[in-house]
């Protein structure tokens, strides 16, 4: 907790003490912690001297902000026009099924989280899925499984331990 406050304090520098930095502060909090906590919102509100409800209002208005943590491998399925027409919905459903989490959710072991996005600008390679920093082009439901197999923590370590 203290470490968290410390990191937050690093962001809240005097030169950003202006309402116009509200969105970018929230963005940085999200980048650092993976999601926006109530504490962070209250700290920003204090810092900018605005009501907490204003910060909450902004954070919930924009799609980018999330209030639950991201998985170690955040999965984002594109549901933009090109991806939708190329079968993106089936890919999203397959992803949800394979990971056994809902859109917007996170797996109980925090390995994966699942989100959707409206276009990442790779429409020519639709449908696309983004996992971490990698873009996976031309996905299909059977490919979902293949891709996940390569990312999932290998149970090798366990067998080695034995």
């Amino acid at each position: 907790m203290e470490e968290l406050d410390q990191q937050l304090a690093e962001l809240l520098t005097p030169n950003r003490k202006d309402r116009r930095h509200l969105v970018s502060l929230l963005q940085e909090v999200q980048r650092k912690f993976g999601y926006i906590t109530k504490e962070a919102m209250l700290a920003i509100a204090d810092f900018l001297e605005t009501p907490g409800s204003t910060v909450y209002g902004i954070a919930t208005f924009y799609n980018q902000f999330r209030f639950t943590p991201l998985g170690k491998h955040p999965v984002t399925v594109c549901m933009g026009t090109a991806c939708h027409l190329a079968g993106g919905r089936l890919v999203l459903e397959a992803m949800a099924r394979e990971l056994d989490i809902e859109v917007g959710g996170i797996a109980s072991d925090h390995e994966f989280s699942l989100d959707r996005v409206a276009c990442v600008g790779c429409c020519a390679l639709a449908p696309v899925v983004i996992i971490g920093d990698s873009v996976y082009p031309r996905m299909t439901p059977p490919k979902v499984e293949e891709v996940l197999v390569c990312i999932r923590p290998v149970s090798l370590d366990e067998s080695e331990k034995q």
Partner: peptide, 12 residues
């Protein structure tokens, strides 16, 4: 902002 989900000219 290129918000149209299916356009990527500005990105390129």
């Amino acid at each position: 902002d290129e918000g149209d989900p299916g356009a990527f000219m500005d990105r390129v």
